[in-house]
Simulated scan of single mutants.
Amino acid sequence: MNDIIRRRAYELWEGAGHPSDLDLDFWLAAERLVALEESSRNQPRTKATLGQDASEAPLSETKQGARDTLVPSASPARGAAS
Rank of each mutant, 00 (worst) to 15 (best):
Y10Q: 14
A66I: 11
L50W: 09
A16M: 15
N2K: 15
A9K: 00
W27P: 00
S39D: 09
G51C: 10
E61Y: 05
D25L: 08
Q64G: 05
E31K: 06
R7Q: 13
G79H: 03
E38R: 14
V71H: 00
G15H: 09
T49E: 11
R32M: 03
P58I: 15
S55Q: 13
P44L: 14
N42S: 09
N42Q: 07
A81T: 12
D3I: 14
S82M: 08
L24E: 15
T46V: 07
A74D: 12
P19Y: 06
W13L: 05
Y10C: 03
E37N: 07
L28Y: 03
L22K: 05
L33R: 02
S75H: 11
T69E: 07
A16D: 06
S60D: 07
G51E: 04
A57C: 10
R78Y: 04
R6A: 09
K47L: 09
S82G: 08
S60W: 04
T62V: 12
P72W: 02
E37D: 11
A77M: 09
R8N: 02
A48F: 06
S82K: 06
D3Q: 12
G65I: 03
R45G: 02
L36T: 14
A74G: 11
A80R: 09
Y10N: 03
Y10A: 08
S55G: 05
G17F: 05
V34E: 12
T62H: 03
P44C: 05
R45L: 14
G79C: 04
G51Q: 02
L12V: 04
A81K: 06
L22W: 01
W13T: 00
A54S: 14
L24R: 14
L36W: 02
M1P: 05
E31I: 08
Q64T: 07
P44G: 12
